[in-house]
Design a binder for these strands. Structure first.
Length: 509
RNA sequence: GGCCCCUUCGUCUAUCGGUUAGGACGCCAGGUUUUCAUCCUGGAAAGAGGAGUUCGAUUCUCCUAGGGGCUGCCA
């Protein structure tokens, strides 16, 4: 067991888009696998055929790829342990359920869904909210423990639907050691005889995940905390199937909590609070509803991944910016926190800003150019580079570069009302007019030259920058704030700059 | 309700019994800047409560409270 190869799996069910909590689970699996020189496997858990959502599986694959968390093996990625879709493994599960029946650890149950509803309701009416199919109640239900074997056989032969349930011993302490939580212990008296095999011929998650993890030689099960309560059941299944010696190690991850109020982050929270909860935009094929995605909102995948990595884990140093390969190196399941982590959108934005700054000007200019192009604006490489480097420090997203630099394109259409009211007057008009004529004489219209001319105008007239700057900016860009006026002049060029000053002198009061 | 898990600044977190309890986001103030942003400096801000163990508990144990998860022929 010590020398066995690390093999971990991410096993989502394709019932909708993968949300960021799922992505983080995948990420931790990936980081652990890569660090240990192991394999990361994608398995699709589609044993509930009633909840199948078209497109969800592809969405999961696309999301992982976008994040750079690419499986070594699994659905869509090949491998020697396939198929990797549980629905395609359907025939493999029955024999294990039968094995459990034969060795006395499972039994047939013929109670219909309606029967169970009725019993649960009766229990509830009697003041007990939690009826369980367990070691005491099973004695009054229709199953192979209460029915004669002839009767059981008769029902099966007649094609009567049945499920197979695990048979738990009473008052047995089930313990296992979780990598993040330490020893966890549950008594079987508090567990129920879970269905392992459904009447539609499909296994439930519980059976399928044990069989597949065993057959796929999974070494570590890293999953969300919502699975903690059923982990003891899984331990028992390994035991009853005779696989306890090669049972994977468990690591149950803390949940991602919503930023406000209580509870875990859910798909509705994002659009309610103004941030995406999904990596990629998702169009619900049935309702037509659209859920926003990080990618479409302009987040860099590495920033998104970096942020997720820190929700529930940290390296113990003060470094916060980590590339995926640095995360692989630094990651440790032992340093994963136990308590749920509340999502903080401001921090996510900050991560994105950090990644934007890490980009060199050329790359930034390229991204800016293609963004502008999508908006219908073609920009020369030279101009894109100038604008990108000028605006870089004030941007969180590529789209900020575009939105904050609108005044570079297509002239000034309107003037900021507040600045106009406060800063534009007869005096400002005079200064702009004079500067216009001074600027018209500058041969080489560089930032340094316009600045020198502007400053000497100020000193000659004993003026402060504040007297002239705001009005000049308003005339040049229509705005009350922004980057260096002279850099703007240089990017606009002499002709366009003068034209704007003329326009302002003409249009403004 | 039952069971399981959890509990350090508003948020993410560091601390492997002895620290002025550190960092980051956010917030506030000051400085730089024509302005805004950036940047720099500073500030406010935390061990849920109660017992116990110990020379000494944020750290170990227990109780209480609070939070979360699970409680389906869903995963």
């Amino acid at each position: 067991m010590a020398a066995e190869k690390v093999r971990v799996r991410f096993a989502p069910s394709p019932t909708g888009p993968l949300h960021m909590g799922g992505v983080r689970t995948a990420l931790y699996n990936y980081l652990f696998a890569k660090q240990q020189g192991g394999d990361f496997i994608l398995r699709i858990e589609d044993t509930d055929q009633t909840r199948f959502v078209p497109g969800a599986e592809q969405y999961i694959i696309d999301s992982l790829k976008w994040c750079g968390i690419v499986p070594d093996e699994g659905q869509g990625f090949g491998g020697n342990y396939g198929p990797y879709r549980q629905s395609e493994r359907k025939e493999m599960y029955r024999q294990y359920a039968m094995q459990l029946i034969e060795n006395g650890h499972a039994y047939y149950a013929f109670d219909s869904a309606e029967d169970l509803d009725r019993v649960r309701q009766m229990a509830k009416d009697a003041g007990s909210p939690n009826w369980q199919y367990n070691h005491v109640t099973r004695n009054s239900m229709k199953n192979s423990l209460t029915l004669s074997s002839a009767e059981v056989q008769k029902r099966i032969d007649a094609g009567e639907p049945y499920v197979i349930r695990i048979k738990l011993n009473r008052n047995e302490e089930v313990k296992f050691e979780d990598i993040v939580r330490g020893w966890v212990s549950v008594n079987t008296n508090n567990m129920d005889d879970k269905v392992l095999f459904k009447s539609d011929g499909m296994p439930t998650y519980h059976l399928a995940n044990i069989v597949d993890d065993h057959l796929m030689e999974i070494s570590h099960v890293i999953r969300g905390e919502e699975w903690l309560p059923s982990a003891p059941l899984h331990v028992l299944l390994y035991r009853y199937l005779g696989w306890e010696d090669s049972m994977p190690q468990f690591a149950h991850l803390p949940l991602l909590l919503k930023p406000d109020g209580n509870g875990k982050l859910s798909k509705r929270d994002g659009d309610r609070l103004g941030f995406p909860v999904f990596p990629l935009e998702w169009h619900n094929p049935e309702s037509g509803e659209v859920f926003s995605g990080y990618r479409e909102n302009g987040y860099f995948a590495p920033a998104f991944v970096n942020m997720l990595a820190f929700l529930g884990w940290n390296p113990g140093t003060e470094q916060e910016i980590f590339s995926l390969s640095e995360l692989v190196e630094a990651f440790s399941l032992k340093k994963v926190n136990k308590a749920g982590a509340r999502y903080d959108h401001d921090k996510t934005r900050w991560f994105n800003q950090q990644y934007l700054r890490l980009l060199d000007d050329e790359t930034l200019a390229e991204l800016f150019t293609s963004y502008a192009s999508e908006q219908g604006q073609e920009i020369s490489v030279e101009k894109a580079l100038a604008i990108a480097s000028l605006m870089k420090e004030r941007a969180y997203f590529i789209k900020d570069l575009w939105e904050e630099s609108q005044f570079f394109f297509g002239g000034v259409e309107e003037y900021d009302e507040k600045t106009l009211r406060k800063k534009w007057n007869e005096e400002a008009r005079t200064h702009v007019a004079k500067l216009r004529s001074i600027f018209s004489n500058i041969e080489d219209f560089t930032s340094a030259n316009t600045e020198a001319a502007f400053k000497s105008y100020l000193s000659e007239n004993e003026l402060g920058f504040g007297k002239v700057g705001p009005g000049f900016r308003l005339a040049l860009t229509g705005k009350g704030m922004g980057p260096s006026l002279f850099d703007i002049c240089a990017i606009l060029g002499k002709e366009a700059s003068l034209k704007r000053l003329d326009q302002a002198l003409e249009k403004l009061p």
